[in-house]
């Protein structure tokens, strides 16, 4: 009960999840002993209020529909389905009765009259349906995009794997070939080197020497070993310069005179001073 009431205060939009709560009413597990049940009185009253026996069906429009099986109250879907089938069965029977009586049943399509729900309300209903549809479509699209992304990632990974495998296979095959040659006894060292170079040029695992001019063919360090001493000299020079002039950072404060630098006359020549004096005199 409590839940139902809370739901009542909340907005009507939250219907779907609250639906299962709403019928959580409590009841006694066993019937109360002292409850009144006056069957004669009830039947008497029924006789009092009921219409005469011979009243035509058309006055009542009531139909009894057989409920095939017990309906579980707490299963919303089953319950609603039971109601729906009851209504549907009722309409079918009613339709047949109307047919046999030759009376009009459904509203003809050109009969316009006031409806229970206003047009503005129906516009709202339609809007909600459309919005819901749109939401579903959007979600679907997002899902598809995600799927595609995942798929492309997988494909990419596969490709990379394949490439590395190919590379490995090639290296392997070269090694194998070399071994075979060694075992079978090769013709001459010179030719062998040539062949090797050929391979190294053509294959992926060594960069071509053409990009680094001035490197000897046999130099395995790629010319770096040769360049080493020159580099060191250059580096020393650079260090000196940067210790003198500074490297990086802000220079403005370093170049400014302070009290110490103004009093420091080391950089000046004595002779210059004397010379000046002489000139003044």
């Amino acid at each position: 009960m409590e839940d139902g009431n809370i739901e009542d205060h909340s907005e009507e939009a939250s219907q779907s999840e609250s639906e299962s709560e709403e019928d959580g009413d409590v009841r006694l597990t066993e019937p109360a002993k002292n409850s009144i049940y006056n069957r004669e009185g009830l039947l008497d009253k029924l006789g009092d209020i009921s219409w005469p026996e011979n009243v035509g069906w058309i006055h009542k429009l009531s139909l009894d529909i057989n409920q095939e099986q017990e309906v579980d109250v707490n299963d919303d879907l089953a319950r609603e389905l039971a109601f729906y089938t009851q209504a549907l069965e009722g309409t079918r029977q009613a339709f047949e009765k109307f047919q046999s009586m030759g009376l009009p049943f459904l509203r003809p399509s050109d009969y316009y009259a006031e409806m229970v729900k206003t047009d503005s309300h129906m516009v709202k209903v339609k809007g909600r349906l459309l919005a819901e549809k749109k939401k579903i479509e959007e979600a679907e699209e997002r899902r598809k995009a995600r799927e595609a992304k995942r798929l492309s990632k997988e494909i990419q990974a596969q490709k990379l794997k394949e490439r590395t495998k190919q590379k490995k296979d090639e290296i392997e095959s070269v090694k194998k070939w070399r071994k075979q040659r060694q075992q079978s006894g090769f013709a001459g060292g010179e030719r062998d080197v040539e062949m090797d170079l050929d391979f190294e040029d053509g294959k992926v695992f060594e960069k071509s020497d053409k990009k680094r001019p001035g490197v000897a063919p046999g130099d395995r360090s790629g010319g770096k070993a040769k360049r080493g001493p020159i580099n060191r000299k250059k580096q020393q020079k650079r260090e000196q310069r940067s210790s003198k002039f500074g490297s990086g950072g802000r220079k403005a404060l370093k170049k400014q005179n302070s009290a110490e630098t103004t009093n420091d006359l080391r950089g000046f020549n004595r002779a210059d001073f004397t010379g000046n004096k002489k000139r003044k005199r």
């Binding site: 009542d8 939009a13 019928d23 009894d64 409806m115 229970v116």
Partner: peptide
């Protein structure tokens, strides 16, 4: 219990106001 009004947007039907309803009762 379990009150839902007609204004709720998920109830999408509409009918003539004042047309006579067919009353169906479960057999219990």
């Amino acid at each position: 219990n379990a009150v839902h009004t007609m204004e709720e947007l998920k109830l999408t039907g509409n009918h003539l106001s004042g047309s006579r309803p067919i009353l169906t009762f479960s057999d219990n």
